[in-house]
Design a binder for these strands. Structure first.
Lengths: 375, 375
DNA sequence: CCCAGAGGTGAATCTGGCT
DNA sequence: AAGCCAGATTCACCTCTGG
């Protein structure tokens, strides 16, 4: 836990910020105003599904300050882009303010708005980590046959800056994808059937996102207990999935009927229990075992000769866990790199040892050691 | 033929313009300068594969230690987004000038540049018709496990304006796609093997595009005899495909070694019977469903207990699709094998679940999922 | 001649913690 | 802040070689 490493005062400050957050609540009103009520650097993830139809309501003004009635005004195209850009810059600015330095931003959109969104994010200093394509398994056909069937939407995942850190649960994603790296194209069905919220037979929200999409986003790029903010909450897919996955959530939503539907829906969502929530742990976060420990505990005897997989290179293990090969001496990593003439080497997988009649990487012994010493 | 509808004087003017075009030639030099030498409103299609501005850092090596041959060419280096934007605006301006009013523009890029490109196209008055995702069948993996595998690139197809007409060969696309509407995501392999141009064993161009991509673009959005301009001609994929499909082409290219390779290649290209095209497209592969997808989409809840057919062994499903049984953890296949002491196991048929009062293999759920999400 | 296995490679913003 | 160093990390193809 990073928090336990903080100095008491910093930890207390962080706890204070968190205590000030309206966790599990939907803030009523315009998203920019709503976000202004939140403290800075307090949120781990922002997921935003902004409107792109330019019908943004009556509270917008042109760059020159003149009022825009979005529904009845007839704009030329450049005017409408300018208005949309202004709106986008405003909410992105607030999102950036409330995000922690190691937080991240996801946005989703279509070709109508995603290019403006992405360019503006780059201009504001966000660092794009991936663009991800949601490939719809069952899209609406193009009835007129005038274009390609619009069968995907685009998501952008960005950190706070080029050098900023971010969360990526690589192993969980790999597990979810049958032991292959998760790719940037996600095949998922659109939201319909039981999941689609309806009232009196008609859908409550025109663009309700499937929970599977948010599930993958949160499992990949947040940790349990993280705070997820959705400035365009709608009917609360983000909140429902956050609850399921043991994440905290905050929403902003202007329309009261969406807020009501969302709260009711999230109330019904079942929280996964602790054991189901656990995911495959990355070796990066697993307890570390030094090579020397295996010598000390007798799993490998000093004096043992270990080799590379093809038995072309060999080295002798010394009592302190260093290796010697001819006149060269080094750690399992350093000597492995040196003997290969490579810039780096993972000694755990490079060096092999004969164990129970089989040649195995020494990493296998480390795993056995971990299993045997697990409490 | 639109030409027959023109008044004699207009038809003559159009013929004059066409006669002034350097058809089947590569104009040497910077693309903006080169395009300035072309008459206005003379070209039916511009296909542009501009530098992506990858902004790569240091070296990258694979897990096996080998070196990744990255795109470090000088033509992909820009000092800042501002410099890149200026470059982009200049060539887009010329492209717009040389395009006919009913012409169209295609661009291709990655998340590094495509958002800036798309936003600028909109700002200049181009009207986006589709964004199209090229889903790579065989992308380069993410070697460090830091992000999602970058498995796609994005194309934007745009007309000259909201009211402008454009060419779309709906039926040809539908035929190409087994009588289903062509979607906005195209699965195609990257360019390698015989198709990849090499000289002395090394690739001539670092980012040669597959011909299949250009086939689809030209077949969809041009007619026979149309003039296609590629301002970033490289090794001439656009020219080779244009020749095969009976389209006229013009290229712009700065580097003489690319120009030479392109001319030689186009010389070799044979004009093709359109009916042969279909066989060149990659076959539709059976959709794969990862176990994790069933968790994400709610077909199986995390926390569910699944068993073998005789209910002797059981395991609990976790949020990322891994299974846990006692102290053992693994994928549906791996854990199934481990618990049986078998070398391998098909988890889909081994593990069973109670569904609608019946005990069924989880494979049955996968089939139901596939049925429900079929295109 | 075929097959198995080894080797190479593709538009990539590709580590992190401690001193 | 820069430097050091432990150590984590790959998928789908293609071509070539040896048996």
């Amino acid at each position: 836990m990073a928090q336990t490493l903080l100095k008491p005062r910093a930890a207390q400050a962080q706890a204070d910020v968190r205590a000030a957050l309206p966790l599990g609540q939907i803030i009523a009103g315009d998203c920019v105003e709503a976000m202004r009520s939140l403290p800075s650097a307090s949120v781990d993830l922002v997921f935003a599904d902004p409107p792109y139809n330019l019908q943004l309501g009556g509270d917008l003004s042109r760059p020159d300050g003149s009022h825009v009635d979005a529904v009845t005004d007839h704009w030329d195209q450049f005017d409408s882009f300018a208005v949309y850009d202004k709106f986008t810059r405003e909410w992105l600015t607030e999102a950036r303010r409330v995000l922690k330095p190691d937080g991240a931003l996801w946005v989703i959109g279509s070709y109508h708005n995603i290019f403006r969104l992405g360019a503006m994010m780059q201009d504001m200093g966000f660092w794009i980590l991936n663009d991800v394509v949601w490939r719809k398994a069952n899209p609406m056909p193009n009835f007129k046959g005038t274009r390609f069937t619009n069968a995907h939407e685009t998501l952008i995942w960005a950190s706070m800056g080029e050098k900023a850190r971010y969360t990526f649960n690589y192993t969980a994603m790999k597990t979810l994808n049958d032991e292959l790296q998760m790719r940037s194209d996600w095949v998922l069905p659109i939201c319909n059937g039981q999941e689609r919220l309806k009232k009196g037979g008609t859908k409550v929200h025109p663009t309700q996102k499937p929970e599977a999409l948010l599930y993958r986003v949160m499992l990949a790029t947040t940790n349990k207990g993280d705070v997820v903010l959705d400035p365009f909450f709608g009917t609360g897919t983000t909140g429902a999935v956050a609850k399921r996955l043991g994440r905290q959530w905050i929403g902003c939503e202007r329309e009261s009927n969406y807020r009501e539907a969302a709260l009711e829906r999230i109330e019904m969502a079942l929280e996964l229990d602790e054991s189901a929530l656990k995911t495959m742990q990355s070796p990066r976060s697993a307890p570390k075992v030094a090579f020397g420990t295996l010598i000390e505990t007798g799993w490998i005897a000093a004096g043992t000769v270990i080799t590379d997989k093809k038995r072309r290179l060999s080295a002798t293990v010394r009592a302190d866990g260093s290796l010697v090969s001819g006149t060269e001496i080094g750690s399992i990593h350093g000597l492995g790199a040196k003997l290969q003439g490579a810039p780096a080497c993972n000694g755990w997988t490079f060096w092999h040892i004969e164990h129970q009649g089989e040649v195995k990487p020494i990493d296998a012994l480390r795993k056995l050691y971990l299993l045997a010493t697990e409490d």
